[in-house]
Design a protein around this nucleic acid. Structure first.
Lengths: 108, 108
DNA sequence: TTCCATTGCTACTATTATCATAGCAACACG
DNA sequence: CGTGTTGCTATGATAATAGTAGCAATGGAA
């Protein structure tokens, strides 16, 4: 019953269950992941512009998230510089967008 | 580091920007938040059943997330025991569900 | 060429969040 | 009574993130 000690390289929690949704929920559940997708919804941003957009978040985490999101195929780095969404990432972003209207209704 | 049920102490990053989407993205970007919503998509679960569903995640974090999600109005604790989604939480869950199909297509 | 600004990215330590385990009090059933 | 649930907490260890500084590479001007 013990969770096996992870054989990890870049392991995404839940990925060993064979259920992609778990891997996705884990990836998106990491800090700044959703925010990055949100901030890239429009035009591509340079790493520093993205950092500014993300409330000056630590470049350590941002780079880590960007690498993960790139490996996942959601984000790409244009040859002219600047991070942007891939077509796949844009599809994913389409599912994050409705959260905007929901959040407005939610207000808290 | 005492954690209290105080909603001030549990400040949600981005909430001070006045943009609800930021507060929501931050809340959902915490570990196990999305997973909890996902696991509660069906019938209500007891705290232990939820823990089992979440790969035996630490009860410390689960309780913290459940408290936050309850304060946010997404999750409630039925008087007969067991955690379930509120109507608002069910609306939010509706936006998480499409990720399932997306994840299947994504595969990685 | 040199100077300077910007790019993506990394090193480093301090702080925070999360893990993992054990256990509590309250309640229900027999 | 004992036994099994429930929701929930204490604790020390570990991993993730914050915060600051800085690097090499590139591309203009001057």
């Amino acid at each position: 019953m013990a969770k096996q000690a992870d054989s990890k390289t870049h392991s995404v929690r839940g990925s060993r269950t064979g259920r992609p949704i778990m891997a996705l929920l884990d990836l998106l559940g990491r800090r700044w992941s959703l925010r990055i997708l949100w901030e890239l919804r429009g035009e591509p941003l340079t790493s520093r512009a993205l950092r500014t957009a993300c409330d000056e978040a630590s470049p350590t985490v941002l780079q880590a998230r960007l690498t993960e999101l790139r490996e996942a195929g959601f984000v790409e780095l244009g040859e002219s510089g600047g991070y942007g969404l891939t077509p796949l990432g844009r599809d994913l972003c389409e599912m994050v967008m409705p959260l905007h209207r929901f959040a407005e209704r939610w207000k808290r």
